[in-house]
Amino acid sequence: MNIDGVNNGIVLDHIKAGESMLVYDYLKLGRLKCCVAIIQNCQSKKMGLKDIVKIDELIDIDLDVLGYIDPHITVNYVKDGKLLKKRHLALPETLTNVIKCKNPRCITSTEQELPHVFKLIDREKQIYRCAYCDVVGDNK
């Protein structure tokens, strides 16, 4: 199967197999006007199987969101057919408006204008807690 290379754009590589649609949804790639390719279950020496997302435009990507979905994803920025830079991700310390607090007693349930802020409390287990009410955030 052939997919054209990206000339000016972004390649999200090393996405865990099966998670590319999660990336697509969280980054709201469906709203873009440019060409977006989702490639699932590619062979990978490192991972066995992996997904790749190619975006045919140099857009601003929320790296915190991406790091939250999977800190092992690599972000390749391509310009004029050449690799401009490669970014490795980390699990972000703070998530703002990425996940929502589901606690009905949380202040965010009544004060609608408040940002939903979560703090990383356990890097190993990837656990985030609401900065207001301390309730643990739902898994992705």
Partner: peptide, 10 residues
């Protein structure tokens, strides 16, 4: 005092 959790943080 507030009935909602996290209100004093705000």
């Amino acid at each position: 005092r507030h009935p909602k959790e996290g209100a004093p943080v705000v």
